[in-house]
Design a protein around this nucleic acid. Structure first.
Lengths: 166, 166
DNA sequence: TTGAGTTTTCAAAATTTACTGAAAAATAAA
DNA sequence: TTTATTTTTCAGTAAATTTTGAAAACTCAA
């Protein structure tokens, strides 16, 4: 396989993977392109390379920066902004966990909290509360596990955790 | 808050959460409805409760059964099929991990494998291969971590793992 | 200032994904 | 069998999401 073809395949499948993980296809493709670029790219480079509009390019670059997956780099003497990707996979995963925990898990925890106080003590109400509290317990464990995970470092994950769970 | 309102809120937010996790809104809502139902429900019960069509109901129930999140239950003397949800959150999460690992992580691993053998030894090609191999290493660690996770039991997660990572 | 280059915004269009409704197939009681 | 009930399928439609394109807003050198 040729280098060019390899890069294209990578961009394509990173895009697909991303779209299943709350990162839209284009956003993930831009990240992929930057991952395999050997130098910082401008918005123009990106739109040419991926055949997407400037508006789309701009919006997704900004989302990537928001998520901490891409950084702006200013080249001295250049008017344009250039961009580079976060290449440390552990960092990438941590940032995605951080975002999704905030956007999805935490709102769910709030809802669970509010509905766990439902009125009534009919059997039906009690059963409902039991289901909710089970989920609440599990979710808050998951939440703090993830909280710990994003504080841990890469070596911990690659080394200790892997062995530990056998 | 009233029980009815609580159940509705739960179904609504479980739907939203699911839609961010590769489970479409309706599919997650059906699962939620079954989670808080105090008895097995028929397809008709479900379509009435959620105001969705029979076709939609049927397709999503079957997807849920496929995923192992819902089970069919036959009531003696009843012609209809009835359905109950998997209520053990640890099981639910394990089944979701299993599905998504198979559908998303594994295809990515195959692509990474194929492109890690890209031709050429220019500096650019070498850098590309390094990026790919880094991701490959990380992904296969993640893959086997998840593999172990889905073999582990709930107590391990709730008890040991939580304390362990402090 | 002015104006060329660059980035941002956002309504409208295109695309993708989910849902419906109606018909066909399956099931099982009569 | 026949018939009533239930489940499945899927083409067409609707809804949601993403992308474009063009204008507005910046930015900075001249």
């Amino acid at each position: 396989m040729e280098l060019k073809e390899g890069k294209e395949k990578f961009i394509q499948s990173w895009g697909t993977l991303g779209s299943h993980w709350g990162i839209n296809r284009t956003m993930a493709q831009i990240h992929a392109l930057l991952l395999v670029a050997n130098e910082p790219l401008s918005a123009n480079n990106i739109m040419d390379e991926l055949n997407i509009s400037m508006g789309n390019t701009n919006m997704n670059i900004r989302a990537l920066i928001d998520w901490g997956l891409v950084f702006k780099e200013l080249k001295p003497g250049e008017r344009k902004d250039f961009y580079v990707a976060e290449k440390d996979m552990w960092e990438v995963v941590k940032r995605i966990i951080t975002q999704r925990k905030k956007k999805e898990l935490e709102p769910m925890l709030r809802v669970l909290d509010s509905i766990s106080k439902v009125e009534g003590n009919s059997e039906e109400a009690e059963e409902f509360k039991k289901v909710v509290r089970d989920i609440q317990l599990f979710s808050s464990k998951a939440d703090s596990t993830l909280e710990n995970l994003i504080k841990a470092d890469s070596n911990w994950f690659i080394g200790t955790f892997m062995k530990m769970i056998k």
